[in-house]
Simulated scan of single mutants.
Amino acid sequence: MKFAHCVFFTLNDKSDVQCESLIAAGLKYLKPHDGIVSYSMGRREPEMQRPVNDQEFDVCLAIVFADRAAHDAYQVSDPHNEFIAEQKENWKQVRVFDSNVA
């Protein structure tokens, strides 16, 4: 079964420069990991203002892994830890949603 890892970042500095820095770091450190089936990272769409739309984040990371083992290896990988070390100072809040997916 595939495994989805979705992370919603709320930033201290919400500027274009900082949002793009986070996205670029994701491409550099996270996207190349083995076992990724699908990788996406981008900014919240401000025009989506329906009552069900969460407005409390700035950047979303959505990765689908081939399986849970690939996710678990990613979590302890050096590139993942480098991404965190480089970017975490600008994180006000990080919410993670993990699930098995078909």
Rank of each mutant, 00 (worst) to 15 (best):
Met1Leu: 09
Lys2Gln: 11
Lys2Val: 01
Lys2Cys: 06
Ala4Tyr: 01
Ala4Val: 02
Val7Ala: 09
Phe9Thr: 08
Thr10Glu: 11
Leu11Ala: 07
Asn12Leu: 15
Asn12Asp: 12
Asp13Ile: 06
Asp13Asn: 08
Asp13Thr: 04
Asp13Leu: 06
Lys14Cys: 09
Lys14Ser: 06
Ser15Asp: 01
Asp16Met: 04
Asp16Thr: 08
Val17Asn: 01
Val17Met: 02
Gln18Leu: 11
Gln18Pro: 05
Cys19Ile: 13
Cys19Phe: 02
Cys19Ser: 08
Cys19Glu: 10
Glu20Trp: 03
Glu20Asn: 10
Ser21Glu: 03
Leu22Asp: 06
Leu22Cys: 06
Ile23Cys: 03
Ala24Trp: 00
Ala25Met: 06
Gly26Glu: 07
Tyr29Ala: 12
Tyr29Arg: 14
Leu30Trp: 10
Leu30Ala: 07
Lys31Glu: 07
Lys31Gln: 07
Lys31Val: 08
Lys31Ser: 04
Pro32Tyr: 09
Pro32Cys: 07
His33Gly: 00
Gly35Thr: 04
Gly35Ser: 04
Ile36Ser: 00
Ile36Leu: 02
Ile36Tyr: 03
Ile36Ala: 00
Val37Glu: 11
Val37Met: 05
Ser38Glu: 12
Tyr39Trp: 13
Tyr39Asn: 00
Ser40Gly: 12
Ser40Leu: 14
Ser40Arg: 08
Met41Cys: 14
Met41Asp: 03
Met41Pro: 02
Arg44His: 04
Glu45Lys: 14
Pro46Cys: 02
Glu47Val: 11
Glu47Trp: 14
Met48Gln: 11
Gln49Lys: 13
Gln49Glu: 09
Arg50Ser: 11
Arg50Asn: 06
Pro51Asp: 09
Pro51Asn: 07
Val52Met: 07
Val52Phe: 08
Asn53Lys: 05
Asp54Gly: 03
Asp54Cys: 06
Asp54Pro: 01
Asp54Lys: 06
Gln55His: 13
Gln55Asp: 10
Glu56Asp: 14
Glu56Ile: 10
Glu56Lys: 13
Glu56Thr: 14
Glu56Trp: 11
Phe57Asp: 00
Phe57Ile: 10
Phe57Val: 09
Phe57Ala: 04
Phe57Ser: 02
Phe57Trp: 12
Phe57Tyr: 10
Asp58Val: 09
Asp58His: 09
Val59Gly: 08
Val59Ile: 14
Val59Phe: 03
Cys60Pro: 03
Cys60Ser: 11
Ala62Glu: 02
Ala62Tyr: 05
Ala62Cys: 09
Val64Ser: 04
Val64Thr: 14
Phe65Leu: 02
Ala66Gln: 15
Ala66Phe: 09
Asp67Ala: 07
Asp67Pro: 07
Asp67His: 11
Asp67Gly: 09
Asp67Glu: 11
Arg68Lys: 15
Ala69Asn: 13
Ala70Trp: 03
His71Tyr: 13
His71Gln: 11
His71Arg: 13
Ala73Trp: 10
Ala73His: 12
Gln75Tyr: 05
Gln75Gly: 07
Gln75Val: 05
Gln75Trp: 07
Ser77Cys: 12
Ser77Lys: 10
Asp78Gln: 15
Pro79Gly: 11
His80Ala: 12
Asn81Gln: 15
Asn81Tyr: 14
Phe83Lys: 14
Phe83Tyr: 15
Ile84Asp: 13
Ala85Trp: 05
Ala85His: 10
Trp91Asn: 02
Lys92Thr: 10
Lys92Val: 05
Arg95His: 05
Arg95Thr: 15
Arg95Asn: 08
Val96Glu: 00
Ser99His: 04
Ser99Asn: 04
Ser99Met: 08
Val101Cys: 04
Val101Asn: 00
Ala102Asn: 13
Ala102Cys: 09
